[in-house]
Write a protein that binds this DNA or RNA. Structure first.
Length: 901
RNA sequence: GGACCCUUAGCUCAGUUGGUUAGAGCGUUUCCUUGACAUGGAAAAGGUCGCUGGUUCGAGUCCAGUAGGGUCCACCA
């Protein structure tokens, strides 16, 4: 067996094992009768993307779940893939084009799409490669892309089917228009931000009362040429006589009516509102109610058009705003301007203010809204943390039709063909469904020469909402059979960020309910049973990580620095359920350190003797009972953590157990036990028992190093070469297994170690406080009772080593010796140096203070008759025992103090 | 305007149905290159759990209010 090196070097180990796993097909998931399935679909990252901290957390969690499921004996399967990310990808390629002074229109649709495809060819696998570096155990043979042929077919088929079912229609509405990307966006893609601007107070002269004005306030004077009315509240006495009259529009001068509408807030400004239906949602609705015309003064790219009037036409919208204010000023119609902060919608992708714009778009009335609510409300789909279900339900309660068309080229082109020569903007709803005028099918019309296909493509999310079942072969029966749809659907757990709860999670639920297993019960049609929402990773100052701030570390660099395992362990340890995470690189360093600790503990085991030692109950001592007891406890805790998706708690539990209980105590006491031939074999066997289970429990979190150690320690024998074939034991199984080997963990014996630990700790403190921490020639005397002395005797060799002492004798010692009260009697140190009475007195006095306080507190509680009457017996008993202990200690400490001269 | 989250040690955070003396990592102080590990070991300092009330024998934990920070939703020009 090759010797384990002195420190853990991740790079080589990671490369070797990932290749070995792939070669062994260790990540493949196939339906397996009689075994429980466990499936996850990856939230597909953008095909042009690179791994960021969010992906890191998200995918580490998925890998943990999948690897744990394997070790629990489940058939685990994780589907990877990428999303074509319409706007994002198209923008990236257009930016590239611009470098050679070209636009997509210069190339034309076909040539441009060729460019995008070759870009995807070149860059599309980067992020998947990065996921492998992280250790993600995806079934790569199942990798999907939302634009690959089968997937596209499904997306198109779904459009056609939803159209047939009456869920899809074409309508002219005000949409969120992105003047940078030149496309409509859904409401979810708009981010409202406060913007510091100016509020302009403008007066409109009443046409038949020259010199009299109605004043309105606006933040957007450039849209005044689009005004078609002023509106006032019908019950506003100030304007009672004016409704029905007209005023002069102050830019592009023309008379416009004053109408009465309850949408106006009388309290705001002058109580009069300018109505610009083309550029404001409320105004649009007012316009509809009053049958007002619509004057659109903006071009698609946000510049002002001819309808804005000769002075403004052609100007960029913000320059136009300034110009409009100047024109108003010049005509005397600008009453005043004041600084004003209002909320403006920004395009999520392009980060420019969106324009409400009246355009023809395709809309979807969501299917299965009620079922989608039920599934979460009644718990067929469980959210972790649960509180997100409120956000989800609230959105569904107020759900609006989804604008699914995008004026882009990169995406799934809408499968609608219009008869040539048809004016598609004058189609009535009935004509839209007339097959002689509009053709809707996956394959297109048989006589394409007579038709023109819709130019628009579908919103990216209108493809990714099918992800959980299309990746399992839907709707093709043969593919579904091959990919195990029956076995793996619904998937078990979805891990994602709460920021896409509407974009993706809610929509997937509705799609799953609408399209899978028609006629079957709800719990068979949902796309997943659990949804785990991660927190958002922020920087040390709590800011979101972003490219522009440059505050986002590169996970691949972190892997280089700390190893994939160290990074995984570190990131999970700072990611409690449901809370945002402040990234601190020190915690990642902590992960690396843990790996090194694990490495060296296994190295120690390997150096101590060959594998294959057998547990011998006859040689069990209290330390063996204690460590196995703790192992069972931490195993139970891990079960709970996985049940409740508490990953950072799991890591914490494993850390404490392994570092404090195993390394700091058991391994240290082992050194004495290993030196004794009688106890040696059993001690090695106990270590193996603990290490085997611990490696299995750590494997999902830190797969590479555990796999390497598993092999190094020879645990991979017996036909289980890879850890994935090992089985993590439940707490119950651990105990049952031990019992079969004739071993019963004795709780009392295990508990007795606490007293021994306290004794050692006190001894070390006595030394450290006098600067003798490193001296190993110190003698102690312990004034121990019979039972305590028996315990000290039983652990004698270990105690000498642990405390760093040459002798621990039974005896009173002298009052001149530094002393401490331990659970195993008063311990005195035979210090050769003269004792500092003052320091000694101070230390003991402080100790006494603490004890006295606790005694008083406990006495007060026990003296309270309602406590004694009402507290449960166990609590009462605990308090009594505590009081007795404290009083003994206090008395001893008092005696020590008195004897100090 | 509505909903939700956070406030615990110098810093970043745990704290599971209320129950012994509130924990961890990092940082700090002192000592230690002892034959797994200095990516380490030992010891120690450090908290009236944002504030005010209430429920209870008992509150960091439950309730009400309040201050500060954050997130999401919402058509106030």
């Amino acid at each position: 067996m090759p010797e384990i090196t002195t420190s853990y070097e991740p790079a080589q180990v990671e490369r070797t094992w990932y290749a070995a796993w792939m070669a062994a097909g260790a990540f493949e998931g196939k339906p397996s009768a009689g075994r429980q399935g466990y499936s996850i679909v990856i939230p597909p990252p953008n095909v042009t993307g690179v791994l960021h901290m969010g992906h890191l957390l998200n995918n580490t969690l998925q890998d943990i779940l999948i690897r744990r499921a394997r070790l629990e004996g489940k058939e685990a399967m994780w589907i990877p893939g990428t999303d074509h990310a319409g706007i994002a990808t198209q923008t990236v390629v257009e930016r590239e084009l611009r470098k050679s002074k070209l636009t997509r229109r210069d190339l034309g649709r076909e040539k441009f799409l060729e460019r995008v495809w070759s870009w995807r060819q070149e860059k599309g696998d980067t992020i998947l490669e990065q996921l492998r570096r992280l250790g993600a155990s995806c079934d790569w043979s199942r990798t999907r892309f939302t634009m690959d042929p089968g997937y596209s077919q499904a997306v198109i088929g779904v459009f056609v089917e939803l159209f047939r079912r009456g869920h899809i229609y074409r309508g002219k509405r005000l949409v969120n228009w992105c003047p940078a990307s030149l496309t409509a966006l859904s409401d979810e893609e708009v981010i409202i931000k406060p913007v510091n601007g100016t509020l302009f107070h403008v007066r409109y002269e009443i046409t038949d009362r020259p010199g009299q004005y109605v004043q309105v306030a606006t933040t957007r004077p450039e849209t005044i040429p689009g005004d078609v009315a002023l509106a006032v509240h019908p019950e506003d006495p100030r304007y009672a006589g004016l409704v029905g009259k007209t005023v002069w529009r102050p830019l592009n001068r023309a008379p416009i009516p004053i109408v009465a509408d309850t949408a106006v807030d009388r309290e705001f400004g002058s109580g009069a509102l300018k109505i610009t239906p083309a550029h404001d949602k409320v105004d649009f609705e007012v316009g509809l109610r009053h049958r007002l015309p619509v004057i659109d003064v903006l071009n698609a790219d946000g510049t002002l058009n001819a309808d804005a009037g000769p002075e403004l036409a052609g100007m960029e919208r913000f320059a136009g705003r300034k110009k409009a204010a100047e024109l108003l000023q010049a005509s005397g119609n600008l009453v005043k301007e004041e600084p004003y902060t209002n909320n403006v919608g920004f395009s999520e992708r392009a980060d420019v203010p969106i324009e409400p714009r009246l355009t023809w778009q395709w809309w979807l009335k969501y299917p299965r809204v009620e079922e989608a609510k039920t599934a979460v409300r009644d718990g067929q789909i469980a959210f972790y943390p649960e509180r997100w279900s409120k956000v989800y339900l609230h959105w569904l309660e107020n759900i609006q039709d989804w604008c699914i068309s995008r004026q882009l080229w990169w995406g799934h082109r809408i499968p609608v063909w219009y008869r040539k020569g048809l004016d598609r903007d004058r189609l009535s709803p009935d004509e839209l469904r007339d097959p002689t005028k509009v053709h809707v099918s996956p394959a297109g019309p048989g006589d394409p020469e007579n038709w023109e296909q819709e130019e628009d493509v579908l919103d990216t999310w209108a493809s990714s909402w099918l992800w959980p079942f299309v990746t399992l072969g839907w709707p093709d029966a043969a593919a579904m059979d091959k990919q195990g749809f029956d076995y793996f659907y619904p998937t078990t757990t979805l891990v994602t960020g709460p920021d896409i709860i509407f974009f993706w999670v809610a929509r997937m639920i509705m799609a799953g309910l609408e399209f899978t297993r028609p006629g079957e019960p709800l719990e068979r049609r949902i796309p997943f049973r659990n949804v785990y929402f991660t927190g958002i990773i922020r920087d040390a100052q709590g800011r979101k990580m972003s490219k522009s701030l440059g505050n986002s570390p590169d996970p691949i660099e972190l892997i280089g620095k700390y190893g994939a395992d160290g990074l995984r362990f570190g990131i999970i340890s700072i990611a409690p359920q449901g809370q945002d995470i402040r990234f601190q690189e020190e915690r990642i360093e902590g992960g690396k350190n843990f790996c090194n600790k694990l490495w060296n503990a296994c190295r120690f085991r390997q150096m101590s003797g060959p594998a294959g030692a057998k547990l011998e109950f006859g040689h069990f001592d209290a330390d063996d009972h204690a460590i196995l007891h703790r192992l069972v406890r931490v195993t139970a805790e891990l079960e709970r953590c996985f049940r409740e998706f508490e990953f950072s708690a799991a890591v914490q539990a494993l850390y404490t157990f392994f570092w404090n209980d195993f390394c700091d105590w058991y391994v240290e006491v082992s050194k004495a036990k290993l030196a004794n031939e009688a106890t040696r074999g059993n001690c090695l066997a106990v270590q193996d028992f603990v290490l085997r289970q611990t490696l299995l429990q750590l494997h999902p979190f830190i797969p590479f190093i555990t796999e390497e150690l598993w092999k190094q320690l020879g645990f991979g024998a017996e036909g289980m070469l890879l850890m994935r074939d090992g089985r993590v034991q439940t707490a119950a199984q651990l105990e049952a297994g031990l019992r079969e080997a004739g071993i019963v963990i004795d709780q009392t014996s295990a508990d007795s170690i606490e007293a021994v630990k306290a004794f050692v700790s006190q001894a070390r403190a006595l030394k450290a406080e006098r600067g003798l921490g490193s001296r190993r020639d110190v003698k102690f005397v312990a004034a121990a009772g019979e039972a305590a002395w028996a315990t000290l005797q039983a652990h004698h060799a270990k105690l000498l080593r642990m405390a760093g002492a040459t002798a621990i004798d039974r005896g009173e010692g002298s009052d001149a010796m530094p002393a401490a009260v331990t659970p195993l009697g008063v311990l005195r140190m035979d210090a050769s140096a003269a004792i500092d009475l003052g320091a000694e007195r101070a230390r003991l006095t402080k100790e006494r203070e603490k004890l006295a306080q606790h005694v008083a507190g406990t006495q007060a509680r026990l003296g309270n008759s309602s406590f004694v009457d009402k507290a449960p017996p166990a609590v009462l008993e605990g308090a009594r025992r505590q009081l007795a202990d404290l009083q003994t200690k206090l008395a001893e400490t008092d005696r020590l103090l008195q004897n100090l001269k």
